[in-house]
Simulated assay, not measured.
Amino acid sequence: MSASANGSPAKPDWQPALYKRFAGERERPALDLIQRVPLDRPDFILDVGCGAGNVTALLRERWPQSRLLGMDNSPAMLTAARRLLPEVAFVEGDAARWTPPEPPDLLFTNAVLQWLPHHETLFPRLFGLVRPGGVMAVQMPRNHGRPSHTLMIETAKSGPWRAKLATQIDRPAPVAEPAFYARLMAPLADNVEIWETDYLMRLAGDNPVVTWTRATGLRPFMEPLDEDEKTRFEADYAERIRKAYPPEADGSTLFAFKRIFILAVRPA
């Protein structure tokens, strides 16, 4: 799932097949958020940053009678989404600027907005697209203070690629504390619910945390590097990750991943 905006990281070359590794673990937060949406039968649902359509399919399963529109900035992801759900409309767009053809009853965005800066203006803009009485539902990873992400910065600082990765090294944390969003959305909404969940996942494979981040958070670090640098950077990062997330006795790896959820209801 992806989005772009001025001041955000370079648009990554998303690979749907790689992103779908650990698909069940990636979809669980979306399922948990869907179950909390306080709408019985929304007429029109907008999936912002729909990616390969996996979450769009979950929305369709939950509300089969609703009209659905998926939006993403990655042509590769949209191709995969159209293949998965040929009956659903998908369009290319930038979540920071794009406007839907009509106000949605539900604006749903899963693991997307962490890629975009300026949440102080982005969230009110997106919320303003929602139909009065409608809902904006947001899920974002907030694992940026954990080794899975801090070791990217550590690796970037310690190698000959430091100058190339200065933007990523200096980038502030992309997701704020829950209180920031509570204060931001409360004056705009009839009701705001915010909570966090720490998912403790048991991942299979050799050094699977690297496989997980390779599809998402690691991508902006790899994009500016040449092929030799990419190989050496990932090897350095992988060694650090192996020490931070050692395998369990059965060969699996425990990986704790924090996510923040936001539900905001527009005044009718």
Rank of each mutant, 00 (worst) to 15 (best):
A5W: 00
G7I: 04
P9K: 04
A10Q: 04
K11I: 08
L18Y: 03
Y19Q: 10
R21K: 12
R21P: 01
R21E: 09
G24H: 06
E27W: 11
E27I: 02
E27V: 06
R28C: 06
P29H: 06
P29G: 01
L31G: 11
I34T: 02
N54G: 11
T56Y: 03
L58N: 05
R60Q: 15
E61V: 09
E61Y: 14
W63E: 13
P64G: 12
Q65C: 12
S66V: 13
R67T: 15
R67K: 15
R67G: 14
L68I: 13
L68F: 13
L69S: 14
L69F: 15
N73G: 02
S74R: 07
P75A: 11
A76C: 06
L78N: 14
R83A: 15
R83Q: 15
L84F: 06
E87R: 05
E87C: 07
E87H: 10
F90I: 03
F90S: 09
E92I: 08
E92V: 08
D94E: 07
R97P: 01
W98A: 10
P101Q: 11
E102N: 01
P103L: 05
P103C: 07
D105A: 08
D105K: 09
T109Q: 03
A111I: 02
H119K: 12
E120F: 00
T121V: 14
F127C: 04
F127D: 01
L129C: 12
G134C: 06
M136A: 10
Q139K: 06
Q139L: 04
P147A: 11
P147R: 08
H149A: 02
T150P: 02
M152E: 08
M152C: 08
M152N: 06
A156F: 05
K157R: 15
P160H: 07
W161G: 00
R162C: 14
R162K: 12
R162H: 12
R162G: 05
L165Y: 10
A166Y: 02
T167S: 10
T167P: 02
T167G: 04
R171L: 11
P172K: 03
P172R: 00
A173V: 04
A176Q: 15
A176P: 11
A176S: 15
F180G: 11
Y181V: 06
A182P: 04
A182I: 05
M185Q: 05
M185S: 03
A186Y: 01
P187I: 05
D190Q: 07
D190Y: 00
N191K: 10
V192Y: 05
E193R: 12
W195D: 07
E196K: 14
D198R: 14
Y199P: 05
Y199S: 02
R202A: 12
N207T: 03
N207F: 06
R214H: 09
R214Y: 07
G217H: 04
R219N: 01
F221A: 02
M222G: 00
E223H: 10
E223Q: 11
D226N: 09
E227Y: 08
E227D: 07
E229L: 10
A235D: 08
D236H: 08
A238V: 03
A238N: 05
R240L: 11
A244V: 04
A244R: 04
E248R: 14
E248K: 11
G251S: 04
L254K: 13
F255D: 07
R259C: 07
I260A: 06
A264M: 08
V265M: 01
P267D: 12
